[in-house]
């Protein structure tokens, strides 16, 4: 396991959306840290709050959403109280982000070069010519052939994989310390997926960039991550390193996720797959939020909410099954 100082420390983050239909607690007490050069994966089903967590870190939660509570420390600076101007200096510079949809994430009306050199000019304070040289260099670096031509092309002439490479080039152009990748390969073909992941891994290693990787693909987790956070209904239900996650998962939800991935069907307890769906914010169950879908749910699970507890060194679980064991000891 890698060590190093934490560059990102998310502590008890609460991000709520106040809509006409009431308050939606999309992120409800999430904590984790990302260390220098490390890759932390956040996994969870659709709607579990992964994107909202990453946008909260970027400071891009728009009204009616708001970070209600908790701290986000980046290199010791508290982002939740950071001024707008200082936040802008971080964004795209020290913390960069890649999004899920390469097809719609680039502005159709501006050339690749325009969009790529934009952040270089902004953060590195260089002139147009230097920015152009750097941009083309960056495009080559992410494996784009005929970089000069691509520089003056519009996004619509590029394939999805190429556009995601452009997004990576854009994100890494200012050597960020943290790269947030929100399902960077979900929209791509399987073969392209592997290439893009490989590229991210290689470039992150070169610059010892830490990655916060959001995905619901456990194959991607196994490939990329050092540590894993499993999210369910806006909360962290399990937090451990990648080896432990696959060899000794604790939370019934994690086990269910692993079992629904074909590669791991020989794990001990048999949970064919998780039945039911993620609860909607208006129909949040009492007690443990996973209890209606959990085969091990007991009385206590339906009344009281478990806390995230460290069950082994660096392995945290939010589940009554493990609370009881501790109590028994």
């Amino acid at each position: 396991m890698k060590t190093g100082t934490a560059i990102l420390d998310v502590d008890d983050l609460h991000t709520y959306f106040r809509t006409e239909h009431g308050v939606i607690p999309s992120v409800n007490g999430v904590s984790f840290e990302v260390r220098e050069g490390e890759t932390l994966a956040i996994v969870g089903e659709s709607g579990s709050g992964k994107s909202v967590t990453s946008l909260s870190i970027m400071g891009l939660i728009d009204s009616p959403g708001k970070v209600e509570k908790g701290n986000i420390l980046f290199e010791g600076k508290n982002l939740t109280t950071l001024g707008k101007k200082d936040y802008r200096k971080l964004r795209g510079n020290e913390i960069a982000m890649i999004f899920q949809e390469p097809l719609s994430s680039l502005n159709p009306l501006f050339t690749i070069g325009n969009q790529l050199s934009e952040s270089i000019k902004l953060h590195q304070k260089v002139d147009k010519k230097t920015a152009r040289v750097k941009s083309i260099e960056m495009l080559r670096h992410v494996g784009i052939p005929r970089a000069e031509k691509v520089f003056s092309s519009f996004p619509h002439v590029l394939s999805g994989g190429m556009r995601q490479r452009v997004m990576i080039a854009m994100a890494l152009s200012c050597n960020p310390k943290l790269l947030i990748a929100d399902e960077p390969t979900t929209a791509l073909d399987v073969t392209i997926q592997a290439q893009i992941l490989e590229l991210m891994k290689k470039l992150a290693k070169e610059n010892s960039t830490a990655i916060l990787l959001i995905t619901h693909d456990l194959g991607v987790v196994a490939e990329m991550a050092d540590k894993v956070v499993v999210m369910y209904a806006g909360q962290v239900v399990e937090h451990t390193d990648v080896y432990t996650l696959f060899s000794n998962p604790k939370h019934p939800y994690t086990k269910g996720l692993l079992n629904s991935t074909p590669k791991f069907h020989e794990t001990e307890e048999v949970l064919a797959s998780i039945t039911g769906t993620v609860p909607t914010p208006s129909k949040m169950p009492k007690g443990c939020k996973f209890n209606p879908r959990c085969p091990f749910a007991t009385e206590v699970c339906t009344t009281q909410e478990p806390v995230l507890r460290e069950v082994a060194d660096g392995h945290k679980v939010r589940c009554w099954l493990y609370e009881e064991k501790e109590d028994a000891i």
Binding site: N93, N107, S119
Partner: peptide
């Protein structure tokens, strides 16, 4: 609300 506007914000543009 388009994705590319979010991209532009994520670059730190004013």
């Amino acid at each position: 609300s388009q994705d590319y506007v979010r991209t532009a914000k994520s670059k730190g543009l004013r």
